[in-house]
Design a protein around this nucleic acid. Structure first.
Ligand SMILES: [Mn+2]
Ligand SMILES: [Mn+2]
Ligand SMILES: [Zn+2]
Ligand SMILES: [Zn+2]
Lengths: 148, 148
DNA sequence: ATTAATTTTGATAATCACTATCATTATTAA
DNA sequence: TTAATAATGATAGTGATTATCAAAATTAAT
């Protein structure tokens, strides 16, 4: 997913849904699009506060929801009861996550096997599949060392 | 997992942690152990209210947490930001879930391939694995029909 | 540019699922 | 029995998120 692709996707979504463009929303979009890895709404809010001290957190929540609805972001929970987000790279195949129960560190992995398995389940259960999540919980190598 | 196995596991956990036995907790345990499929804390609370109108929801939350800690229950989120629980059948291998985005219906599936994949990831990333979740989101056959 | 219609925004109240606190009650070992 | 400790229910508090609403911004049509 290139930046200009995402920008097009963003602008198209706004047009297609009869929304108006706005400075604040653009600012949030620009910030998010620069992020690598996974982030929370609060991460983005804190970032933006530095250059825009009057931005409201509701606007950040709203815009992130919009970006999820438009397919630009995907949401995860990673076993917690709050949202984690990341850019939805529609080029690459979906990926799984290894989540460290100690430090929260997240490692991504790709697997053709999983892809196949999802397709198999789709057929077997007559499901129209939208997305999937494969999350493995455990202790990362670093935390294993520091455990002793 | 037989009922008596679970009861042993429950009693052992209570002894091992220096807890006292109690009528209320036993009642909650008995109710949960009869459940099939996935349930929320509120499901259990509503059930119990019928025969025990003074039970507090805090006690249900506490007991379910205890049962998760003891390994009797496993918790899921199924893409939502609240807990769903089910009996942890330690005999059977872990299973995945197909979740209908329309009606919320959940279908379980087993897959040796996934098991192998998890072991592979464990080796490849030097992780000490605790558990995993494989969730596929889509539209179930029933809802596909009623969509037209 | 001015207006009018509509959307966006920030403040903040409300909600939802859950955890913490605490005085009262129950359990248990002595 | 008593004494120590755990369990309980009521309820306050929390954290993440959504809803509400008046004011400000955007847009399209004059
Ligand atoms: Mn990821
Ligand atoms: Mn299940
Ligand atoms: Zn770690
Ligand atoms: Zn369905």
């Amino acid at each position: 997913m290139t930046l200009s692709n995402l920008k097009n996707q963003y602008n198209d979504y706004i047009k297609l849904n009869g929304l108006k463009s706005s400075k604040r929303r653009d600012l949030i979009f620009e910030n998010i699009v620069k992020k690598i890895g996974h982030f929370t709404t609060d991460d983005i809010y804190s970032d933006l506060l530095k250059t825009d001290p009057v931005i409201g957190i509701a606007t950040v929540y709203r815009t992130i929801r919009l970006l999820v609805d438009s397919g630009i972001l995907v949401e995860h929970t990673f076993g917690e009861k709050r949202g984690f987000f990341e850019i939805n790279n529609q080029q690459a195949p979906e990926h799984g996550h290894l989540i460290c129960l100690k430090c929260g560190h997240i490692t991504e992995f790709y697997s053709k096997t999983i892809e196949k398995n999802v397709k198999f389940m789709q057929k077997q259960h007559n499901y129209k599949i939208n997305s999937y999540k494969f999350e493995i919980f455990g202790i990362c190598p670093k935390c294993q060392k520091s455990e002793k």
